[in-house]
């Protein structure tokens, strides 16, 4: 989804420095200290995890750390609420499957 270049009321948003991170092994860019979920959204990522029993996709829902729909595996730690966790350089972010990282397809990985 597109970042808002200039907002009629808020003007241009101040951003942190641009950093690189990986999503399921794929190199992506975002801005330091913005929520991980926002950086993913800007890169078009909608699915953050799959539910354990029925393998249904989930993404951002409340965006304020309340609903836990957007949790992912971040630097090896599962159930991290990506909507309230600041993005850092080099973070390893993976789609969560149940309570662990989803298996990556052949050829993926850092």
């Amino acid at each position: 989804m597109e970042r808002i270049a200039e907002h009629p009321i808020l003007g241009a948003k101040e951003k942190g420095r641009e950093v690189e991170f990986t999503f399921d092994g794929q190199r992506l860019k975002g801005f330091e200290d913005e929520p991980i979920a926002i950086a993913l959204k800007a890169n078009g990522v909608m699915i953050h995890r799959y539910t354990k029993k029925e393998h249904k996709p989930r993404g951002i829902f409340c965006a304020i750390g309340r609903c836990t729909d957007c949790v992912m595996v971040v630097d090896g730690k599962p159930n991290v609420r990506t909507c309230v966790t600041p993005l850092k350089e080099g973070m390893d972010i993976r789609t969560q499957d149940g309570v662990e990282a989803a298996e990556m397809k052949e050829g993926e990985g850092a």
Partner: peptide, 25 residues
């Protein structure tokens, strides 16, 4: 209702007014 892309209105506000990203097209 659980599909990615169904969001709360608060989430929309958070995305666009705090983080400067469109919630959707």
């Amino acid at each position: 209702w659980t599909l990615p892309g169904v969001i709360g209105a608060g989430a929309a506000q958070t995305m666009m007014n705090l983080h400067g990203i469109q919630p959707g097209k």
